[in-house]
Nucleic acid binder design. Structure first.
Length: 544
RNA sequence: GGUCUAUUGGUCAAGGGGUUAAGACGCCACCCUCUCAAGGUGGAAUCACGGGUUCAAAUCCCGUAUAGACUACCA
């Protein structure tokens, strides 16, 4: 029996040979330098922050080179596939404006000329290529059972030998086609292994766009390329797909670095041109002194929904991720406040080689700056959307008089150096509640307040039509009546005076809001209006 | 055990043989005709450790330590 006949025995029903596929998926017609890359998740549930980082990186590079960013679903592990996994991924990413030029659209549909984009639907393509490898003697059926493989590993561990199926452990590597065929006809279960041409004692150089040249021993493991269920393993599917889809850059997380020798070897023996690789470091977390990878299971901040629930705008998350991808982004953005993230040119060289500790504080700071630049309309809408989902009760108060709420939100906003007290939409309520009578049920702390002075001021001096300067000057002037002077003078001769203008303002602020720290007092008083100010003073008097 | 990678302030980091070792977040201090948030000014690092190479090392080389990844018929 020849190898061809063995290949026919294993794959009797191949519709097309590999030449057909090579012709079906021709070179893409793109301008020079265009990056074709992909996001290739397993549909195993929600998108986590690391996946968002990887997809955002790929998206940005493809976009800035007028390239292609496609979505390929790697569902060759049928046990892990989750219902609606694909739609969820697409929806989660769309929230961050990460969209695809081609690929899966949901569980059923897709667009693009290089599909199918769901690996489980590409079985016959993989089979065609595996068949070819068997014909050429570059792959072979292996009859080792999983138990036997485990035993081999245990033995290797015991003898401190290198682990894997290679050399003498590759028991079925050199079976003749006749011997293999006999076993197959005898219904012995098997998988297909790659017949590695490598030697552990030779070195191979691999280039990574962020790490530079890496040197590894050649791969000499006969890795499985097709599992018992007929589906390919990741390694093989990656090579066939990215060849046929003409991917130019593989951007993936750095857990794949050590598979590089396998992948390069696979590309080589298949006669394909290998793409460029870019491995990005994982996001880390300091867990009580232990630095570890952000974990989907242990860390709530790993889920993208965590930021949504906190009320951190997606755009802020993206700004933070952009600084992680290229740290010089931050500086650029500082100098180009009006530009968009997509105006920045990301570079592979600037991608950090070591993992970054995820810094929530910094994210919130970025969010704070972002929110401070929104117009009153924008922040009103954003906060409203947030409250609709997470705080129905306050939503009612918030939306009762939109113009009033917008005026509150506009205090010290829409100016060159806007106020920056809102870090996330969940902060809004705690920052403005006292502006609503419905919410204003204060418990005043003990404090020295001259109620008579305040009554006199509010009833006889305060005019809500005054502008800020007049308002302030009036308080200063009024203060003299009660022996309150200017701050400067008071500091020089504290014993001669009751207090200074600031003290009056503080008393006012305290009675009006029950707080000692608020935004601009003039604005607050102006918005509340004289009538409500007096009412609040009365309320305070009653409580005392 | 094997293979590979990384290591610059509390954090993210620039810098790839000669620098007063950028910048950002956080922290502290001071300033700013009401507080706060901002904003401004200033403060805090012998570049993990030990050896080399060199006139000169954060930068190059070798060890050590620490951390991470891989070592599945998972991706």
């Amino acid at each position: 029996m020849t190898r061809e006949e063995l290949a026919d025995l294993i794959f009797p029903d191949i519709k097309h040979d590999i030449k057909y596929y090579e012709e079906k998926y021709p070179e893409r017609n793109l301008k020079e330098g265009a990056i074709v890359t992909r996001y290739a998740p397993s549909p195993t549930g929600f998108v986590h922050i690391g996946a968002l980082l990887a997809s955002f990186t790929g998206y940005s590079f493809a976009k800035q080179t007028d390239g292609v960013f496609f979505l390929r679903i790697e569902d060759t592990d049928t046990k892990r596939t989750v219902e609606n996994g694909i739609s969820n991924i697409i929806k989660d990413l769309k929230d961050f404006d990460i969209t695809f030029t081609e690929g899966a659209l949901d569980e059923e549909n897709e667009n693009g000329n290089y599909g199918p984009y769901i690996q489980s639907q590409r079985k016959e393509i993989y089979h065609a290529f595996i068949k070819e490898l068997i014909k050429e003697g570059k792959a072979y059926p292996c009859f080792l059972s999983e138990e036997e493989v485990n035993e081999i590993r245990e033995r290797q561990e015991k003898h401190k030998d290198r682990i894997g199926i290679y050399g003498k452990y590759a028991k079925y590597r050199d079976l003749t086609p006749d011997e293999a065929a006999a076993k197959i006809k005898n219904n012995e279960p098997y998988i297909i292994r790659f017949k590695s041409p490598g030697s552990f004692y030779k070195k191979i150089k691999c280039t990574d766009l962020v790490r530079g040249t890496l040197e590894f021993p050649e791969n000499d493991l006969d890795i499985p390329i097709m599992k018992k269920d007929g589906l390919p393993t990741y390694h093989f599917a990656h090579v066939v797909d990215d060849h046929l889809m003409h991917t130019t850059h593989i951007i993936r997380s750095d857990e794949w670095v050590s598979s590089l020798p396998i992948h390069i070897q696979l590309f080589e023996t298949c006669g394909f041109k290998a793409p460029k690789y870019c491995h990005i470091s994982p996001l880390l977390k300091n867990d009580d002194g232990v630095i570890r990878k952000l974990s989907k299971r242990k860390d709530p901040e790993c889920a993208v929904s965590f930021y949504h629930e906190m009320g951190i705008p997606n755009e802020a998350v993206k700004l933070y991720l952009a600084t992680i991808i290229n740290s010089n982004f931050e500086e650029w953005y500082l100098q180009n406040k009006d530009k968009k993230i997509s105006d920045f040119e990301f570079s592979f060289k600037k991608v950090s080689k070591s993992g970054a500790l995820f810094d929530l504080e910094k994210l919130i700071n970025i969010s704070r700056t972002y929110i401070s630049r929104l117009t009153k309309e924008e922040i009103y809408e954003q906060t409203k959307t947030y409250l609709e989902e997470f705080d129905q009760e306050f939503l009612k108060v918030f939306t009762k008089d939109p113009d009033y709420t917008k005026a509150i939100l506009n205090i010290e906003r829409e100016q060159k150096k806007p106020r920056k007290d809102i870090g996330k939409y969940s902060d809004v309520k705690n920052l403005i509640w006292y502006m609503y009578d419905e919410e204003f049920n204060p418990e005043y702390e003990e404090k020295n307040i001259d109620v008579d002075l305040l009554t006199d001021y509010l009833e006889n001096y305060y005019d809500e039509n005054d502008d800020k300067n007049t308002w302030f000057n009036k308080i200063a002037e009024f203060g003299l009546k009660y022996n309150y002077t200017s701050v400067k003078e008071y500091k020089e001769n504290p014993d001669n005076y009751e207090g200074h203008v600031g003290d009056i303002c503080e008393m006012l602020r305290f009675v009006i809001t029950s707080l000692t720290m608020t935004p601009d007092l003039y604005e607050i008083m102006h918005l509340l209006g004289k009538e409500r100010l007096i009412k609040r003073l009365e309320q305070y008097k009653k409580q005392k």
